[in-house]
Amino acid sequence: MKIVIIGGTGLIGSKTVAILRQGGHEVVAASPKSGVNSITGEGLREALSGAQVVIDLANSPSFEDKAVLEFFETSGKNLHAAEAAAGVQHHVALSIVGTDRTPDNGYFRAKVAQEKLIEASGIPYTIIRSTQFMEFLGGIADSGAQGNVVRLSPGLFQPIAADDVAAQVADVALAPPRNGIVEIAGPERAPFDEIVARYLKAVGDPREVVRDPEARYFGGRVEEHSLVPLGEARLGRIGLEEWMRQARQR
């Protein structure tokens, strides 16, 4: 099977490429560096020729509200047009758990717009909504930092390892389209501030984590269940302690 991965050289993309190639599939790791650009449309039709599945892992270089919305809308429209021309049978996209429950987060609003374009495209699809990646815990701590204090919400958090995300993406790509949403999350659920505090302690970061119900997550207010699946979800196998142990060994 020919599978094209838009954003195939990124964190999740590179891992997904490896899994699918190991399974014997023809995988195109598409990115602007390889001459495939979903914003300009450059190389899209050539890359998608003969592809049965397209996995969209592209991400905006800017997280500014207007820029990120324009990125996902432009990329999505170009990609769906190229997919229709190529007769692609399954569009898989990675989104975020809680996108539709945090309207004051500009990035989440942009992901909702991306999902709506997918649903309206007429191309069979599966949207994978994931919780936050464990690999981003350091950046999340930095986003809530004020000097030596990190203020974070006590809302529930269920981070997932990138290896587990890639495995789930590959599995969904090889299955029939759901024409709906699949949610994935890490195996452990705990308050946001507690998980980040454990991470900082493990990496020797001396900053103090303070529980603050008013703390924002990239501009969005975090309620108790804003960032975790509300219903059934596929759970990863790598827990936070194991992931941190693996990270230290690398």
Rank of each mutant, 00 (worst) to 15 (best):
I140L: 10
T40M: 12
A67G: 10
M134W: 04
G35K: 08
R211N: 14
E242Q: 14
V169S: 06
E214D: 15
N59G: 15
L200E: 03
A67K: 15
V88L: 05
G220Y: 07
A120H: 12
I118K: 06
I55S: 02
K33M: 09
F192C: 08
G219P: 10
L57D: 05
P176W: 08
K66F: 14
G24W: 11
A175E: 13
A175L: 03
L137R: 01
G231C: 10
A197L: 02
D163N: 11
E119T: 11
V203L: 03
N78M: 12
E214C: 01
A162T: 10
S62V: 14
K77L: 12
E208P: 00
E135Y: 06
V150N: 00
G10L: 02
V172C: 08
V149R: 11
A173F: 00
I12G: 00
G10P: 01
T126C: 07
G98Y: 09
A190C: 07
D56G: 08
A166S: 12
V150T: 02
V228Q: 04
G231L: 13
L152Y: 04
E83K: 02
H80E: 14
V210M: 08
L48M: 15
A190W: 10
R245Y: 06
T16F: 04
V149A: 13
I19S: 04
H225M: 12
L69Y: 10
R198M: 09
G87S: 04
E64F: 13
T16W: 00
Y199C: 07
S34R: 12
A175W: 11
S226W: 08
P124F: 02
I55E: 02
E73G: 00
I19Y: 07
S121Y: 09
K2L: 09
G106A: 15
A120I: 07
G50A: 13
V149C: 00
S130T: 08
V17H: 05
G98E: 10
V182K: 00
E46A: 15
H90K: 08
